[in-house]
Amino acid sequence: MNETALSSPDTWLDEHGAALYKYALTHTRDEHKAEEAVQETLLAALQARDRYSGGASVRTWLIGILKHKIMDMFRHDAREVTLDEPDEIAEEAALEDNFAPDGHWSLRMADWGDPVQALEGSQFLAILQRCLDALPPRLARLFMLREVMEESTEIICKELAITPTNLWTMLHRGRLGLRQCLDRNWVGDSVQIAARG
């Protein structure tokens, strides 16, 4: 077990700081938050260094701590803006926009073609990332947790103090928003069904 590497957090910053920062930036989409998350992670690691078992690599251990810190931040952000009435109304209006009054789609769904091809190309993922950034922040946070970080419904609901029904409703809104953005920017050939509604 490498005692010297562990006892000098200064080396962690030089060896792992950039990787941690990039990971944090990908998930928080905010430079200040990413910096804060890296700092919190290294401080926590410094305090908990006695508990590092040496089983995983230092990097893996640090990323594990970082994930918790990111979750903490999301929880904090979620509290700050809970039950924001205007958000609620705007999101619901955006959802309704997808449908005609009779419950049909207001646009005919485009065929996105071969999913394997989409996933293999770099373009789809790049646009997906941009569309994720364009989502309302609280929906984007839930997407990060649920879809990108693959947290369970139970954990997300517990951490953010929301009900599963609440979570599903917001994820659904997010999915429709993301779908619409991808549709416009990636395929972009949905045809308006003018006669409907």
């Binding site: 989409a118 996933l119 879809e147 990108v148």
Partner: peptide
């Protein structure tokens, strides 16, 4: 496809 792609990002 969206779910697969988002997981891929992660």
């Amino acid at each position: 496809l969206m779910r697969q792609a988002l997981r891929m990002l992660g």
